[in-house]
Nucleic acid binder design. Sequence first.
DNA 1: CTGTATCCCACTCGATACTG
DNA 2: CAGTATCGAGTGGGATACAG
Lengths: 138, 138
Amino acid sequence: MKAAVNRHPGCDYKGKTRGLNDAMELLQGKWKVLIIAVLCCRGRKRFTELQQEVEGISARMLTRELQVLELNQLVQRTVCSTKPVTVQYEITPYGKTLEQIVMQLMDWGLGHRRRIMSATLSVSSLPDSSPLCAQPDN
Amino acid sequence: MKAAVNRHPGCDYKGKTRGLNDAMELLQGKWKVLIIAVLCCRGRKRFTELQQEVEGISARMLTRELQVLELNQLVQRTVCSTKPVTVQYEITPYGKTLEQIVMQLMDWGLGHRRRIMSATLSVSSLPDSSPLCAQPDN
DNA sequence: CTGTATCCCACTCGATACTG
DNA sequence: CAGTATCGAGTGGGATACAG
């Protein structure tokens, strides 16, 4: 480990940043990664079940987000022509390729909450939960 | 590998989803992960250098995003009292804990672009670049 | 049950002009 | 050079009502 931080090898982000843009564009928003996480962890779910597990999401949002995920082949939608129709959503094998990343993000986020909480508690004390992620108060 | 997808062990996302929320809340937006990626790959950078490397970002946005990243201890800001002041930004050791995830996202995004492009080309042909990530056209 | 259609506000982000 | 201030368009996402 010399010292040099610059230009470490095998990391020419030239043109690669597009990958990051694409991934973030797709995963942007409050809900998509959560939906993916739930489907990864809990398996196949019906619409209403999903809405219960993804805390706080509205039907409108759940619909929209699922459509995007399906269009991007991360989620498979299956309609069962039962009495009143029921619909199953499940993660696709391709969607599973995001599982690791999502789980790492989850763990990182948990650690980050602890870190920011304890760093912030020394100054002002927050009532646990909620906003987190230090923000410039403008 | 049986078949069962449901409730695979060690993945009780109960309460853990908060981690995902926190992480996504922090990383939300067009620019933050890109800035992180650049600082990880290219090392310490001055403000204007960063603005050049993060293609398309405005000074206003770069400032704001860097402030958030600094508040969250992912980036360190150093002012050098030179002739006209110069400022150095660099990723912190803590910020480095995101490097793996960011790089994985980058790779995944590159693969996703290929996948969606070829899937979509069969239908309508796009002029490469740009929007990507299949979207319901409303 | 599984959505869709509207309405609407808050916020994100870009453009532009200005400052120490 | 490294920002800050202001304005404005566009969008994300909640609430509500309705539909197959």
